[in-house]
Simulated scan of single mutants.
Amino acid sequence: MSELLKKTNTKRLAACLAVPLAVGSVVGKAISKDVKEYSELDKPNFAPPKWAFPVAWTTLYTLMGLAKYKALEAADEEQKTTVRKSDGLQLSLNFIWSFLFFKFHLRGTALIEMTILLLTILYTAKEYAKVSKTAAKLMIPYILWVSFALCLNASVWYKNK
């Protein structure tokens, strides 16, 4: 166990975990009153209950942070730049989607943006795989959730045009 801790760059790990969790927290607080309106929308029968979203996103943000950490630890300097850029891009798109969908009620625009987000996440996972298979695998739940959320977004948009 102590050998594992010696190999862990705790500052990098903390930063990799803190950034997506902080982004998620900021988004959650910024759109909290707008999310209440979501419950009034016509949603498909496969829409998860309200409590599932914070549980899922906290888990996903944690996995994103761990994936980035694993990728950075395995990457050379040039690859670290790519890891940081791809991660920053997907996290920025993740942040923007919530405002498009919940705050500004631009559900069609959010659908297009989420499609770009999903492609960016896939690109990020591909870049992670070049340096760490574990990092890429940690992105799978995120890819699956965003794929599901894309279907949910499309259905909500269609039902509430």
Rank of each mutant, 00 (worst) to 15 (best):
M1E: 11
S2Q: 14
S2E: 15
L4R: 12
L4P: 04
L4V: 14
K7D: 09
T10I: 13
T10E: 08
T10C: 10
R12I: 02
A14G: 04
C16A: 14
P20A: 04
P20Q: 00
P20M: 05
L21P: 11
A22Y: 05
V23F: 02
G24Q: 05
S25G: 10
S25Q: 03
A30H: 01
I31M: 11
K33W: 05
E37D: 14
S39I: 07
S39D: 15
K43L: 04
A47P: 06
P48L: 15
P49H: 09
F53W: 10
A56N: 08
L63Q: 06
M64P: 03
M64C: 09
K68Y: 09
A71W: 09
A71N: 10
L72K: 11
D76H: 04
D76E: 06
E77H: 08
E78R: 15
E78Q: 12
Q79K: 15
K80T: 07
T81Q: 13
V83M: 12
K85W: 02
D87C: 13
G88D: 07
L89Y: 10
L89D: 01
Q90P: 08
N94T: 05
F95G: 03
F95C: 03
S98Q: 04
F99L: 12
L100P: 00
F101I: 08
F101C: 06
F104N: 03
H105W: 04
R107T: 07
R107Y: 04
L111R: 00
E113Q: 07
T115Y: 01
L118Y: 08
L118G: 06
A125Y: 08
E127Q: 11
K130Y: 09
S132L: 02
S132D: 06
A135F: 10
K137P: 00
K137L: 15
L138W: 01
Y142I: 13
I143H: 00
I143Q: 01
W145E: 15
S147Q: 04
L152W: 09
L152M: 10
L152R: 07
N153L: 06
S155K: 15
S155L: 07
Y158L: 14
K161W: 10
K161S: 11
